[in-house]
């Protein structure tokens, strides 16, 4: 959980790329992923995303997140396989009464959906893992002309996730140390039993928001014209890659129009 949506410091070529290039990459993955629905294309896309993660040296750190995603992928797969409803029946989930048929095309389209979801989410996580927050903000504001307030809000929300998880851990540790244990299967009891963790968390979060606002004001937030100390330069590799990615996207769209990659 700790590594989700957090920068992971490495010195890989991917890390050195301009944030804009990586943003274009993630968007290309999104575009290509949505264009096709053939499972082979989408599995290849997922494989390419994993290769990029490996090249950036963040594959191992992202594995827990990827493992978490597979749960959702399996649910997607199951739903898709069950409700597709066309084609030859492969087997029944409830064999005795021939209920819940799984069809061949249904299974394949389920795989496609799962691979697409994993590729899209992982590409975004890789982007976050290989790019410093301040560089993302810089690019959003300087290059893409996003209003600073929105860029800042977006990044703060992202930063909040890992901090929140670490707080969840600390609070539940503190309550466990006072002999607190969530017991039994009664759902009403269970929900009430979360109060000892949920209440301090809400209070801490409100408090944090308050402090953040104060810290921002004392450091001159919205105090007028902003200038930047650093500048994110686009290198040769950045331009080259961006052009390649653009070509890939156009090529994919053309292929799709020509009828490839559909099922």
């Amino acid at each position: 959980m700790a590594a989700v949506a957090e920068y992971i410091s490495r010195n890989s070529p991917i890390h050195r790329l301009n944030p804009l290039t990586k943003m274009i990459w993630a968007l290309s993955i999104l575009g290509v992923g949505l264009l096709f629905n053939d499972y082979r294309y989408l599995l290849a896309l997922l494989a390419s995303v994993l290769l990029v993660a490996a090249a950036a040296g963040v594959l191992r750190s992202l594995l827990p997140a990827a493992a978490g995603l597979t749960v959702f992928a399996l649910i997607l797969l199951l739903i898709q396989a069950l409700f597709y409803g066309q084609g030859q029946v492969l087997f029944y989930l409830v064999p005795v009464s021939n209920r819940l048929a799984v069809t061949g095309p249904g299974l394949l389209s389920g795989i496609a959906m799962a691979a697409r979801m994993m590729a899209l989410v992982l590409s975004f996580l890789i982007f976050l893992a290989t790019t410093r927050t301040r560089d993302i903000v810089l690019t959003l504001v300087e290059k893409l002309k996003v209003p600073y307030d929105y860029a800042f809000m977006f990044m703060t929300a992202l930063r909040f996730i890992p901090a929140f998880f670490s707080e969840v851990r600390q609070v539940s540790e503190a309550q466990q140390a006072r002999a607190y244990a969530v017991e039994g299967w009664n759902p009403v009891k269970k929900i009430r039993a979360y109060a000892p963790v949920a209440v301090p968390l809400v209070l801490l979060s409100l408090n944090k928001a308050d402090q953040l606002a104060m810290a921002m004001e004392t450091r001159g937030y919205s105090g007028g014209l902003r200038t930047c100390l650093r500048e994110a330069k686009m290198g040769v590799a950045d331009y080259g890659l961006s052009v390649l990615l653009a070509l890939l996207l156009v090529g994919s769209a053309a292929a799709r129009l020509a009828g490839y990659g559909l099922m």
Partner: peptide, 30 residues
């Protein structure tokens, strides 16, 4: 941990990670 809590008490660095009752007495009684 909840069993070990009967043998070892632990006072944490930050009290705000544990306080969630509306009175001091209830907090202590938790």
């Amino acid at each position: 941990v909840s069993e070990l809590a009967r043998k070892v008490g632990f006072v944490f660095q930050n009290p705000d990670h544990q306080i969630f009752h509306d009175t001091v007495a209830r907090e202590v009684a938790f």
